[in-house]
Amino acid sequence: MVANKIIMDLYDGNNAFELIKEVITPALERIGSKWADGDIALSQEYMASRISEDIVDSILPPESSTRRDVPVIGLTTLGDEHMLGKRILSAFLKASGFKILDYGDMKAELVARNIKNDGVDVIIVSVLMLNLVSEVRELRSVFDREGIDTKILVGGAPFLFDHDLWKEVGADSMASDAMESFEQINSLMGIVQ
């Protein structure tokens, strides 16, 4: 595969992060921005993220101690069984060198318990079903009740069709696409790129 060959030709055994920063992330940024503008389709974003994840896994294994674990990022769909958005997002972030804690489709109470134990800084919630956006509100209320200060970042179709919905459900921010989630994580954590 062409993308794999380009990276492997440049890989010297010690420059994984350099390649991620200078080649893979900019490519994903361009793909993300094209998706946000409606210039490419979900299937293309999916294939790009899958290919990138495979390449990065080969130069930076998922269990590598050199993976970026700050900030600590969690992912969930809060009961929504539509996993594709989460899968793309997970691949994007892994391809950017992050470790990701994937909580699947757990309900709010259980997600909150895991977040507390794992010291998660940002929990990303990917939701497709409109009725399940109320689970974000539930998550916020558990956070408030238990004094959890993890930031809630949301994404998914309902938020794309109603740009104020993230505020309505008590999220800290929303991202329109996988790449924007990367920018939002940095913004929520006050990280300057």
């Binding site: 409606g38 490419i40 389709a41 979900l42 299937s43 293309q44």
Partner: peptide
């Protein structure tokens, strides 16, 4: 729809 797959596909 072009939201999901590209027109050429």
């Amino acid at each position: 729809s072009t939201t999901i797959i590209p027109p050429e596909l």
